[in-house]
């Protein structure tokens, strides 16, 4: 069960300003049914240029409903410029905080607000112009970078909690890592040393493995009348076939694991697993 604050519970059970304004000045719709949460925000300006009324309709969990309710309360009485200063963090704070996995609900609120104001001004949203990074939830690189900078995010998990990006199939995780790196580098343009685990493409792996086999492993095996051949490389699995005296040797498994795998891990990639193909 989620640890919701009393304020979240209260706004979920008794949401304020539910509905739609018939003659709204601006309407913003974000999210979708397939994503699991969606928010439609409408507002009406008063004669003084301040937001006189704001209403919402939300499909989503308790925190999405509470965040929508909070947003409408925060909006009323503000000018559009003041309204645009509201960040997702402000919405979360208004509610006494949200579980980190639910931060995307506050981001949803902020996005709906921007969409509604863009609708009023008749301009396009910058976010929609970005390149979609996460196909599952339709999140663009601009949205991701913005969330990284505004909320000081460091990991893919953080990004998922705030934007949902990467929460589905997981295919975009590498791209998200690059975006985190880029966004943080743009913010603080000092040279950051490359670190973290080595990444290689399959072709690079095959080339390197062939090289080590040729230079070290094959000559050593040939001394005992054996030989080895590379059959396939699939992810971290290196499929090989032992030839000559090795193929009938009772110790071939030991050779494979203790010698071949060890050498390849040392010199190519430390996550490789050597298997004998049939």
């Amino acid at each position: 069960m989620w640890e919701y604050t009393d304020k979240v519970k209260e706004h979920f059970l008794n949401p304020r300003n539910v509905g739609e304004i018939a003659d709204a000045d601006g309407v913003g719709e974000v999210g979708s049914l397939s994503c699991g949460d969606a928010l439609k925000l409408s507002f009406k300006l008063g004669e003084d240029g301040r937001i006189a009324d704001a209403k919402f309709k939300t499909f989503g969990c308790a925190s999405a409903i509470a965040a929508s309710s909070a947003l409408t309360i925060m909006l009323i009485g503000r000018t559009l410029e003041e309204a645009l200063e509201i960040t997702n963090e402000d919405i979360a704070q208004f509610l006494g905080g949200l579980p980190k996995e639910k931060m995307h609900c506050s981001v949803l609120g902020r996005e709906a607000l921007e969409a509604a104001i863009a609708d009023y001004r008749g301009v396009a949203l910058p976010m929609a112009e970005g390149e979609v990074v996460c196909e599952c939830f339709g999140v663009t690189d601009i949205e991701v970078k913005r969330a990284i900078l505004e909320n000081d995010l460091h990991t893919v998990e953080d990004v998922t909690n705030f934007t949902k990006a990467g929460g589905g199939c997981g295919k975009c995780h590498d791209r998200l890592k690059v975006l985190i790196y880029e966004a943080r580098e743009e913010k603080a343009p000092q040279p950051i040393p490359m670190s973290g685990p080595k990444r290689m493409t399959t072709i690079q792996k095959i080339k390197k493995i062939e090289e080590v086999l040729e230079r070290e492993i094959r000559p050593a095996l040939k001394k005992d009348g054996g030989d080895i051949e590379l059959i396939d490389v699939d992810g971290n699995f290196v499929i090989v076939s032992l030839r000559g005296s090795c193929s009938s040797c009772a110790k071939s498994q030991t050779t494979l694991k203790e010698y071949v795998e060890k050498k390849l891990r040392e010199q190519v990639l430390d996550t490789l697993v050597v298997e004998e193909g049939k």
Partner: peptide
């Protein structure tokens, strides 16, 4: 057109315990 967690939390107010396949 409604979300499971929201339903469960409302049921919870009446002491009704169930579960949901919703993402949230």
């Amino acid at each position: 057109y409604v979300e499971g967690e929201a339903i469960l939390l409302h049921l919870d107010r009446f002491g009704i315990c169930a579960s949901s396949g919703s993402a949230c």
